[in-house]
Design a protein around this nucleic acid. Sequence first.
DNA 1: GCAAAAGTGTTCTTCGTACACCCATGG
DNA 2: CCATGGGTGTACGAAGAACACTTTTGC
Lengths: 243, 243
Amino acid sequence: MATESTQDYYSLFAVTVDLSILTVRQDVLCALVVERGIEPYRGQWALPGGFVRPDEDLAVAARRELNEETGLANLPGHLEQLATYGAPGRDPRTRVITVAYLAMAPDLPVPVAGTDATASRWAPVDELLASDDSLAFDHGRILADGVERARAKIEYTPLATAFCPPEFTVADLRQIYETVWGVRLDPRNFHRKVTGTPGFLLPTGRTTKRDSGRPAELFRCGPAGVLHPAMLRPTPGSTRNDN
Amino acid sequence: MATESTQDYYSLFAVTVDLSILTVRQDVLCALVVERGIEPYRGQWALPGGFVRPDEDLAVAARRELNEETGLANLPGHLEQLATYGAPGRDPRTRVITVAYLAMAPDLPVPVAGTDATASRWAPVDELLASDDSLAFDHGRILADGVERARAKIEYTPLATAFCPPEFTVADLRQIYETVWGVRLDPRNFHRKVTGTPGFLLPTGRTTKRDSGRPAELFRCGPAGVLHPAMLRPTPGSTRNDN
DNA sequence: GCAAAAGTGTTCTTCGTACACCCATGG
DNA sequence: CCATGGGTGTACGAAGAACACTTTTGC
């Protein structure tokens, strides 16, 4: 909102909402990307998104795009504003201001049947971030910022549970941390940490039996908003030899 | 950047950059506010800001507004993007998307001689946040978000030094933490913490002599980008009896 | 000398790390 | 029975909390 002192006139900008939608599939951190059907960057992959409507709140627009692109209404998980990107020239057609949102969702069984004709897929973020031009526009930067935000936030919030189904085991949750951070964590210390932090996990009393081995207890995400003390991300070079 | 699938047309929005400019004056956390000269909210206080120009980068616009409002070119300190606010109706005239930036600056000797006719002042954030309508538009929320961001970031970054002059004592820095967090910190443990974290502070070798008492060493901000381990913010209820 | 602020040493406790060990199930 | 993963016990060390104590200035 302006002081309107030196400059009462104003310019108008196109505004879009773009999404970094992250999930963990088969122990790989993935993001949802769509194939562009029109120029510019026709045929390249891009983050899903779209123009904000004249009377639509930004968060509402983000939720609408999320539902449209994943084909799921009220997708479980998490959605938050990430940052805004507005460099002149980032869209060759016209000046566009993009408000990026970050979503974290459990693994979706269907690879997303897009509501529109454009193809979409889950792609490993490592592939998408390997080259600067793997994604259209400045979407590589937006995705990198989203991944970094996710990595940081699971340290001190229970947000890693957003990657899990409603009920999950401690091992499931540990696998999320290991995948998102790209490290190995000691299963025993991890177990103590998450079960010992009050309000982090709610025991359901039930257990899972998958393959061999002792059945694991099932938990739900608890009411705690922050983790204290935080989960510590090991330095990438740390090794761990178990037994 | 849109998929442009279901909706190729787009709307245009006015875009402004508004600033939460924080400083510590006489041991009080303050923000810069300007008096609005026109409707709406005429005569009320608001955060400084203004419209983004057609070919201006968002960060450039924020820096320009910062220089204009403080009357200082290349103000020392820190400037970062905070968040974007775009609820319909937040400006009664028209739809406006506001990209908010957070600035942290050392105490400025002059109370800011505005370049324009509007009055401006440093006001304690406690006053500005005491009531929901102390500030125009949704600027109370923007300021609250900025303060919360600042409180969080000085935990794990050397950003508290942005509130200090180029050279400062450990006690100066501690006073910043105490003011921003609203707590008391043990001077001895604080000293060990900041001087013991490599790269946080650079000794200048010189000392200050103010009133009575042993002269304090002068430091500059060091090259460290993050503090590890982080500075711990005490729980607000913790008391501390010294000696 | 005395007050006041700067800076150091020491103890206690909390918590992360590493790893030995036991538990419960499938084959 | 044994392999496999789930979960507990415990010892060590790093770092925060609390506070006694020494240092260096002004008055």
